[in-house]
Design a protein around this nucleic acid. Structure first.
Lengths: 69, 69
DNA sequence: ATTGTATTACTGCTAAAACGGTAATATATG
DNA sequence: CATATATTACCGTTTTAGCAGTAATACAAT
């Protein structure tokens, strides 16, 4: 697994956004953005997806069975 | 985005597991496994991770900024 | 067709995530 | 240093995901 929290944080910084701005853009609460950056894994998948979309981050799943997207 | 539900389902089948068995192995409820396979995005990230671990599926995040893992 | 198994669907209850507010700490910036 | 902004942390409240139980439907297999 990758450090999702750090990934989100670095992308947010690169985009020049504060946690609050990112939260608003993603349509979620600031606390949740904070939690995601802290790698709290009990957040909703939908909330993570919302953040990733704003930051233009894609998700890929890989396994020995999948050589595709 | 990929069809995570279908991905989980196909991997589960390949592993010869029922939803209930997968749920038990992942330490979550059968309802949640069902929800994941139905692409319900309001499930907890931790529960998705638990299922992915059992099925040996890895997660990757990609963006124009990340050429690495 | 019938029996068995798996999946899908629905229902309350409970636990906890999400949230805004606020406060304290940290991190700039002048 | 001082001021401003951002981050981290904590706290109630509200919302809701998670869950087991159950029932109904689908799907095999005999």
């Amino acid at each position: 697994m990758v450090d999702l929290g750090l990934l989100v944080k670095s992308h947010r910084k690169k985009a020049g956004l504060t946690q609050l701005q990112l939260a608003n853009l993603a349509g979620i609460g600031k606390t949740t953005v904070f939690d995601i950056e802290k790698n709290k894994e009990t957040v909703r998948w939908s909330n993570i997806l919302a953040v990733l979309q704003v930051l233009n981050i894609e998700v890929e799943f890989k396994s020995p069975l999948t050589e595709n997207v």
